[in-house]
């Protein structure tokens, strides 16, 4: 008996999808953050460069080199009471053209009381016809803190690529003390380049970015506004529900990153990962 060609093709497609997961938790021991359990599988790995202070740095490496349609990646980090960690990535995440099935990326960050998580990956670059669904679930205890930055670039702008087709769904849920304080789903599909051209969407810009700072209030926002230099792209700030947010929209990743670093420089005592400074 022969398998029908369609299901055989589907099997081959499935067998060639990358899978990767990294899970670890952190504990504070004698005033120093140490990792406790660590699980790595598939093409997603984590490296821990030498600590520079009492916190820990973790660097994700995607050995598959990028994300293709149907790939599934998961990251779970739990920071125990009082621990501090900075999470980053070794390279910009490239999302390749996908025929149909979107890639899935699930990120779950948990921080117990007095713990701190910085999530500062390099930008995500969507190639034309890329499809990706990402979820970011963040659970913070009442006294935990967070600094999170994300940059997404639509199309390989250096070579003038425009996204004519694709799908980008980015679902964020931020809980603090069990209460949902911020929820957002960015949803762009179809002719993404055409949508980005609309004035209320991006007016032709191709890079967007978001920073979340917890805890954050009006006083923090005022302080940032007062010391902020003129931005290269567009930027806006606000605080509500106990957190602060900065939003960015720019022509390219370099301008956006410069604007974001200016805000972070005013906002936070957390040192930025060295990779950001290159």
């Amino acid at each position: 008996m022969r398998a029908d060609p369609a299901s055989a093709a589907a099997d081959i497609f499935e067998a060639n999808r990358a899978r990767g997961a990294v899970r670890f938790d952190l504990r504070l021991q004698d005033g120093v953050t140490r990792r406790h359990h660590l699980h790595e599988s598939g093409s997603l790995r984590v490296r821990f460069p030498s600590p520079e202070d009492d916190g820990l740095s973790a660097m994700f490496v995607n050995t598959a080199g990028g994300i293709a349609g149907g790939d599934r990646f998961a990251i779970e980090v739990a920071a125990g009471e009082g621990s501090r960690v900075t999470l980053s990535s070794a390279a910009a995440e490239k999302v390749y053209r996908a025929p149909g099935t979107p890639a899935e990326l699930a990120i779950a960050l948990r921080a117990a009381d007095s713990a701190h998580i910085s999530w500062l990956p390099q930008e995500t670059i969507l190639f034309d016809r890329a499809r990706i669904h990402r979820r970011m679930d963040i659970d913070l205890a009442e006294t935990a803190s967070l600094l999170l930055c994300e940059i997404v670039v639509f199309g390989r702008t250096a070579m003038g690529e425009r996204m004519r087709e694709g799908e980008f769904v980015d679902r964020w849920r931020l809980r603090r003390g069990g209460k949902l304080v911020f929820a957002e789903t960015v949803r762009l599909d179809g002719d993404i380049g055409d949508k980005l051209a609309q004035p209320a969407i991006a007016n032709g810009a191709t890079a967007i970015g978001t920073a979340l700072i917890v805890p954050g209030d009006g006083a923090l926002v005022e302080r940032i506004r007062e010391s902020l230099p003129a931005s290269r792209g567009e930027a806006g700030l606000s605080a509500w529900n106990g957190f602060a947010m900065a939003r960015f929209c720019a022509q390219d990743a370099a301008s956006l990153r410069a604007d974001m670093m200016a805000v972070l420089g005013c906002a936070s005592a957390v040192p930025l990962p060295r990779l950001w400074l290159n």
Binding site: V169, R171, E184, T185, V186, R187, L188, K195, P199, A200, I201, A202, N203, I208, R225, E234, A235, G236, L237, S238, M245, R247, C249
Partner: peptide
């Protein structure tokens, strides 16, 4: 509920910048 989403980055920026 999972389908609910938006992409109005600059309309959102406008509401942020309106604060000042």
């Amino acid at each position: 509920l999972d389908d609910i989403g938006s992409a109005t980055f600059r309309a959102d920026l406008a509401s942020l910048r309106h604060e000042t």
